[in-house]
Structure formats: C-alpha cells, structure tokens
C-alpha cells in the first residue's frame, strides 16, 4: 500500500530522473526514536480518516524539556500525529486513532481519561493565529476561567500578566488589555495565542506550524520565545521550514507518507541523515 502510493506520487514528480532515489523501502524508523523517562510516548500509532490510513505504525518518545521538530512534505501526517497527542482528532468524527499513547506513563486514550482535561495539560498553538473575538485580557483568562485556576480577580490579573510576560507580549499590550485580541498584528496575535496556551499552565505545548503565517521578524520573536519556554515546558513543533527546525529544536523527526522515517538529534538529521528519504528531503530534492 505504502509503496504503491509512493510510486503514484513519483509518477507526478517533476524530476523523473531521480525516481529511483525516492523509491526506497520504509522499514521502521531509523535513528533514535526512544529516550529514557519520556514526557510523552506513542507505540504502534495508526490513524485513519474513515477508510484512509493517514499514519502508519509510528513509535516515538518526546523527552522532558526538549523541543522536538516534526518535518516532512505536505500531507505526510506530521500535523495529524501532533493532534493525536492532545486528542484533538477526537473532534473529527471520522478520525480513528489506535496504539498506545502516554503522558508521564499515563495512557491518554484510556476509557477514564477526559480529553478535555488532557488538553489542559497538553496545550496547542495553531498555524493561523486564532484569538477569540474577545479582549486581550479575556483571551488569556479564557482557559484559567474554564478550569478555575484563579480564585479571585487579582489572582486572575496576576496570571494574565504573568502569561503575557512569558509570551513576550506584555510590554506591547499592557495599556490595551481590554481591546479586542483580533486587533493585534499577526505576530502579536500568535504570541497572544501562546500566552493563552501557557496561562493554563500545560506540561506540553504542541505547535502546528506556528510561524507559517508570520513575517521573519515576528517569526524570530516566537523562536526566541520557544527557546525560553523550553525551560518549563516540553514543546513539539510541526514546521515546514527546515531552517526553523534546525534553529529551535534539539531532536528532529522526519515524516514521509504517514511513516515516521527517521528521528535523531537535530544536528545529525541535518548534517548526516541516516535515511535516504531524509537526505533527499533536507537537500531539497523532495517536497
């Protein structure tokens, strides 16, 4: 199945002379997908959209306080896998997830696990900044109010301020907290979404192409922010920019056609990839 679909893709490739290079058997994951004492881990993960399989047997550990980058061509399943980790796929009725997934050794797909509470522990930042149609203050206070994290107004004020400071946005908006969050610039909106995510005090933050809609300056600000955040949080980031993966992450996972092809130290992946497909991708011959 995977082979035939790869071949199908090959038929459409622009450089037919390199066809053989891509026609590589994907047989398990090379590199070092496993770590000791992981924050999150997945074993034998398959994901289906109705009858179509999107993820094939992914095994991966995410270490504590690391930034792991997930790269790969469009449609390779990296975003789908990210959404497995906080059960966001549950909101898609036709989507089915199998395998074992744990957070701190605890099965996150167990019957007694409430996906709503899980998402408070595993936060998410999306590709397009999606502030709610509320004031900046209410955007950040949203999760805290939902989960009752602040006992009174002054605690909530402190929490909002602390989150905005952590997200590096406080200086810019401290006089405009009651203005609508949708009135900010794209980069500010995305930092607002990060502030909103960390206000709930999650353990893991999943970022799905968080800078793809932003200009280089806003991107640089967010990358700096991620570097600071990793002291307190574990971050998994999906990105289309290999430079970004190289700049921010400690480990990099390369996905291809729903398979996890290679996981290694970021440096190894970008300087000395083990798998032919990884090499083709990072040298710009694919995707």
């Amino acid at each position: 199945m995977s082979n035939s679909s790869i071949e199908k893709n090959m038929a459409n490739a622009e450089k037919p002379e390199t066809r053989d290079e891509f026609n590589v058997e994907i047989d398990g994951t090379v590199g070092s997908p496993f770590v000791d004492n992981p924050k999150m881990s997945s074993r034998n993960c398959d994901v289906f959209y109705a009858d179509k399989q999107a993820i094939f047997n992914v095994n991966l550990d995410i270490a504590k306080h690391e930034i792991i980058a997930m790269i790969g061509p469009s449609g390779c399943g990296k975003s789908t896998y990210l959404r497995v980790l906080n059960r966001m796929n549950d909101t898609i009725p036709i989507c089915r997830v199998t395998g074992e997934h744990t957070l701190d050794g605890e099965d996150i797909y167990a019957k007694n696990q409430d996906p709503v509470l899980l998402r408070a522990r595993v936060g998410m930042v999306f590709q397009k900044p999606n502030p709610f149609p509320k004031s900046i203050y209410d955007n950040v206070a949203y999760g805290a109010r939902l989960h009752g994290l602040a006992a009174n107004r002054s605690e909530l004020d402190d929490l909002v301020e602390a989150s905005l400071i952590k997200a590096g946005l406080f200086k810019e908006v401290k006089d405009d907290l009651l203005k609508p969050g949708t009135g900010l610039s794209g980069g500010q909106q995305q930092r607002l979404c990060i502030a909103r995510a960390i206000a709930v005090d999650p353990e893991v933050i999943l970022m799905d192409e968080p800078t793809s809609a932003l200009d280089p300056i806003a991107t640089a600000l967010i990358e700096e922010l991620m570097d600071e955040l990793k002291a307190n949080y574990t971050i998994a980031i999906v990105t289309h920019s290999m430079q970004q993966a190289a700049r921010v992450s400690q480990r990099t996972a390369y996905f291809h056609m729903g398979h996890l092809v290679e996981v290694n130290d970021t440096k190894t992946v970008f300087t000395n990839p083990e798998h032919k497909l990884t090499e083709n991708y990072i040298t710009g011959r694919f995707g």
């Binding site: 966001m88 909101t91 709503v116 999306f126 939902l146």
Partner: peptide, 20 residues
C-alpha cells in the same frame, strides 16, 4: 480554527459554544 483554539485550551463543546 476558533473552535479548535477553544478545544485546544481544554474547553468542552458546550463551553466552546457559549463562550466562543
């Protein structure tokens, strides 16, 4: 995206509907 943002914060469906 607006709904996803709310679910991603750990909001339930009814909270998302009411507040977002």
């Amino acid at each position: 995206a607006m709904r996803d943002g709310s679910y991603g914060m750990g909001a339930t469906r009814s909270e998302t509907i009411k507040q977002v």
